[in-house]
Design a protein around this nucleic acid. Sequence first.
DNA 1: AGGTCAATTCGGCAAACACCGAAATATCAA
DNA 2: TTGATATTTCGGTGTTTGCCGAATTGACCT
Lengths: 112, 112
Amino acid sequence: MEQANAIEAFAALAQNTRLEAFRLLIRVGPKGLPALEISRQLGTKPSTLSGHLSILKRAGVLTATRHQREIHYAANLSSVNALVQFLIADCCGGQIDNCSEIVSLLDCAETS
Amino acid sequence: MEQANAIEAFAALAQNTRLEAFRLLIRVGPKGLPALEISRQLGTKPSTLSGHLSILKRAGVLTATRHQREIHYAANLSSVNALVQFLIADCCGGQIDNCSEIVSLLDCAETS
DNA sequence: AGGTCAATTCGGCAAACACCGAAATATCAA
DNA sequence: TTGATATTTCGGTGTTTGCCGAATTGACCT
């Protein structure tokens, strides 16, 4: 993870509709949801949401997989992991190894 | 942590100079650095940095304490913790307790 | 009080961003 | 192929944001 990626991810999450979408997909789990369903649940126009989804996807916090006609979007938990890793790298100048090791476990089981 | 706080924090970190400042302060540790020193290390104008620092501080990711004339800024690790907690709350609909418990450990020793 | 240094606020400009409706593209089903 | 549904792209508008230099405020020292 580089600084530019991290900025892109933070910027992607720093917007109401996008953060709601992301959290919704976190709750939903690995299977994700099609775009129109997300749009319905959030009460946003499909066109507006589409832009948001592509921003989230480009930032790497969402994955998109086609299922028939629909594109299912799902939260990418490992990107959250990478983001936190990036943030606290070299924490306290490395004196306290505590900080660097902690958040390397994030991953929802890929079940269901 | 509420959605609005999270957005503010993400937006604060979604900018090059601010993210650099934050990471610098993470590396430096709990004692932090005075504003002008940060400005020197990052190569930004003090006035520009000042705005950035206040954004980071208002978002809660930095703390500010006065030491004589100087104001020392330090990274607030517990805000990172809260942010991640907020992100992965109700992960996978709570089916997998794995996700919710993981990131509650972040904290640099308050030493030195 | 007067001088110095740290930090912030202010004014102005250019670039980026969010929103919408309408039109275009893509996939499937009949 | 035609029609229906899913999603994206396009134009246009108003708001937000980042940058800077200059002026201002705040704390300290003599």
